Simulated assay, not measured.
Amino acid sequence: MASLRALHAFSLLARHGRAAQAAEELGVSPSALSHLMRKLESELGATLVLRDGRGLTLTEEGQRLALGIGDAFDRIEGAVDSFKRRGRTELRISTVSTFATRWLIPRLPDFQAIQPDVEILLSASTRVIDLERENYDCAIRLGKGNWQAIDSTLLWQEHLAVAMAPSLLPGEGGKPGEILSKLRLLHSASRRNDWSLWLNEAGLEHSEATSGTLLESRDLAIQAAIAGMGAVVIDRRFVEQEIAAGHLVMPDWPVLELDTGYWFVRSPNRPLSRPVSAFRDWLLKAAG
């Protein structure tokens, strides 16, 4: 019988088409994954994958095997995980990093206080998860809410406003353009267009509209703003604590309303469990 681990490796390769991604999901190195593939091809006496330097292509026999395997390993993993979770009330949540660190985690103790038996497993990633195939009960997604076959509930519509350290805002005030012209603009790698959008809305120009200091995430951009490195444009909800503590100020300047927002999403094909329902209702109340 063919090695089940090698078959699992092949199923991941067939799904992703990239050795690195399949190896990461399997928890092995790319070279170990390649060894498993050679082992499987030797056991079956067939060439399953063509490697051309641009990716992986299934041969005709590889396609036939992938079709036969189908979602068998997903179903096995789901059955084992369900067995391991017996007797526990878990809530598996996927969200994006900024939402998790800047808004959700500071508020989660409130949810735990009203649902003390629910064990929370929180994952932060920019990858859009498959709520049908992956083992998450729900997710928080950023977008327009027009996802197919997904139950979506809007938490809030995004906006952009300028924030900076108090030391960077002149006490006598001044026009936004005059003040910003003397400041560096802080950008996050995942939101390179935010400053351009806000400046366009405010009718202003800046030499660093598309350049300037670049941080890997919005969380780092906020920390840089607190340190006085420059101004950041951000949704006010993500800096409420810093504003309340006096670490940041948000001048009464234009606020740009965006057509994207944060949504609570779940698969309509899964039962609406008590933890998921409670979490959704709590989110709506907290976001309101």
Rank of each mutant, 00 (worst) to 15 (best):
L155V: 01
F264Y: 01
L142M: 14
L108Q: 04
H35W: 14
L33T: 02
A227F: 08
Q63T: 07
L256Y: 05
R15K: 06
A72E: 08
S123R: 08
S29L: 03
G228I: 08
S42Q: 15
G174A: 10
V232G: 12
M250P: 05
E257T: 07
I234M: 12
E216Y: 12
L197S: 14
A32T: 11
A209S: 07
A245W: 13
K39P: 04
W253F: 01
A287S: 15
I179H: 05
E41A: 04
I243N: 13
P166Q: 10
R86L: 08
F10G: 00
W195C: 01
A72M: 02
I105S: 12
T98N: 14
G143T: 06
G53L: 09
A244P: 00
A100C: 15
R75V: 03
L7M: 14
D81K: 10
L48Y: 00
F99I: 04
T95F: 09
V118N: 04
S273N: 13
E216G: 12
F73T: 01
G53C: 03
D110W: 06
R127F: 02
G174I: 09
W195S: 03
W253H: 04
G171I: 05
V49E: 04
G288Y: 10
G261Y: 06
L121Y: 14
Q241G: 10
L197P: 02
R38Q: 11
F111H: 05
D110A: 08
L199I: 07
I114S: 11
N193K: 11
G174C: 05
T59G: 12
P106I: 09
E61K: 14
V162D: 04
Q148W: 10
L169I: 06
S29F: 03
Q241C: 06
S211P: 05
M250K: 03
V118Q: 03
P251K: 08
D219T: 14
L121Q: 12
H8F: 00
